[in-house]
Design a protein around this nucleic acid. Structure first.
Lengths: 194, 194, 194, 194
DNA sequence: CATGAATGAGTTTTCATTCAT
DNA sequence: TATGAATGAAAACTCATTCAT
């Protein structure tokens, strides 16, 4: 389906150049159509961006629940937290484009989307904490696997783990990246385990 | 001096819209001149960006040495690390614009600068580690203030502290921001102290 | 029949935006089909316009004869002229759209049709004068109902009555419109009656 | 001054093709500049149209007062009315372009201006009646030069004289045009004179 | 130093039109 | 009959840049 191919190409180019840096001509070329043809599928460049963003938002929101399910298979809080964290070490191209698009948009949204992005992002982060991180942490504390302490502080630490991981994507080659993720994880776990 | 006013305005607008999103017309307007007048001071938009970038790079490089000096006044490794970290909690507008410009450029440099930015950034990061972080950590370990452990791992942890701090700028209001920086610091210090 | 629905919708939109202002997409939408479907019925936008125009031309030409017949039922020149004039006070939506289309096309034809329109219009006007206005005026003079005078001058006056009526459509609400038509008529009749 | 040359060229092309039919490329070409240069002088095509329209509106509003002055030189109501009417027989190119632009815009304004045009036009018409036509008619009646009668009806008649005159511009060659204006005038004057 | 005027090279967007189904 | 998908041609508009003053 052309529409999806366009969205995929668009995501890739939005990642490379941001909203303003991505030209419709390039997006069209990536799908082997001419620029005007894009307008059969999308009202405007803005709407295209929004659809890409919304798709990803929904995908991640869904993913939250998927992960939530998967956690049930795991018996220790450590494994569960690690499973959540693992999402960040997957380095398949698509996956990574999406993650960079997500972060780029979160940090530097195109002007016309500033408001919405901010709201959606905050809502997503809240879900992430409420559905995944906090329950696991609480459960781990109850099971004495994790030191009793202020959960909210632990959450802040865990979130910043993921933030740091994202930054690393840009600086490190794949191997260093994985290595560093591991280091961060160790620090984190040592800090909170009983 | 007009030239500096231009650079300051440019930095601000590059922060808001990135290289492509910032229009010379806006930069000129911010300085109360017309766009052609910019060309008296700068050869081109690219050159303007580069100058802003270089200025900041040098400023930070200088700052490294300044901080290096300041560390001598401090007697504990904890205070020293904390002093380095403190740069990140200053939240004056200028300071912050610079930090965001820095990170934005590091993460999403304009295409024409990709190469140079990457190199300069890496060089800077190395300096940061070599001049400030590593020496302090080593010294702290020697003094048994910090647990004996792999220094490089500690560096990774410290660096990611600053990365996380940056991300928080975007999400949190000033108070929350400061609070979280504190939390992260506590986690970090608890992890490495003896 | 779809074809006729299209023509009706087209007429309406040509009235609103002129030839260039009317978009095939809107015309199609008004008939609940998609733009490409229009091409099953018409070769091109130009051809569509021409058909609409020709239909109307023929309709009006026919109407001339109808009116000519109807005049036979009327015994005074005054009633006859008034009957001719009455066409202009009908204000049903369709009727009016047609009149505006007619005038708009007469005054500001699309470039590609300039020649034909001019010719057809002039031919129509001549018919209007030859078949309806002049005979009635002559007959009225012969019957001493109308002052003996230069018929051609009377025709000019009568024609300008209709032109003025058209302009009023745009400026006046229905009631004012009717009222003014009446005023004009009174002036006219007083001027030419015996 | 380029700006004025643009406005003049624009008026001419708006007359020929209406708002949608006039292309900026043609307007630019008429002034020997490239299309983007138009944007140095006008924000957009719409704004250009609006300025042309406003200029003309003001010009005509001024003209009303000029004519008002000139009327004082004339001693009979007949001469005065005729003087008002004469404006319509001037057939210099510029003058006529303006008149056609005026009427075209009045009758078929571009969609984005519909509201404003309607209001401005009605205001202008009112001025025309209040400042010129009604006073002269009243004065003529007082002087027994004009038959005592309902002034408002006379105004309607006079206005439609001008409307009809406008329509004639499109149909007739200059000589016929002048001849018909004369005929209409005679009818009108005969109708209202004492 | 600064700017008014203009422009080249794009960029998004519109729209009538085509064509395979 | 009708349409989904695509396109050519052109439209308006943007923006960095130039240049004479």
């Amino acid at each position: 389906m052309t529409k999806n191919k366009i969205k995929k190409a668009a995501l890739e180019l939005f990642v490379k150049g941001g909203y303003e840096g991505a030209r419709l001509a390039d997006i069209a070329a990536a799908v082997n159509i001419k620029p005007p043809s894009l307008y059969f599928h999308f009202e405007s460049k803005e709407k295209l961006f929004i659809e890409v963003f919304d798709d990803l938002l929904n995908k991640r929101l869904d993913y939250l629940n998927t992960v939530r399910q998967e956690l049930n298979e795991l018996t220790s809080a450590k494994d569960q937290l690690r499973h959540i964290y693992n999402d960040y070490s997957a380095r398949a191209k698509d996956n990574q484009d999406e993650r960079v698009f997500w972060k780029r948009t979160a940090l530097f949204p195109p002007n016309f989307l500033k408001e919405r992005v901010r709201n959606d992002m905050i809502a997503y982060e809240r879900q992430f904490e409420d559905v995944l991180v906090r329950p696991v942490l609480l459960w781990g504390m109850k099971a004495r696997e994790i030191k009793r302490q202020d959960v909210e502080r632990c959450i802040v630490a865990f979130i910043s783990l993921t933030a740091a991981a994202f930054t690393e994507i840009h600086y490190s080659d794949p191997d260093t990246y994985r290595e560093r993720l591991e280091i961060l994880w160790d620090f984190f776990w040592d800090s909170i385990k009983s």
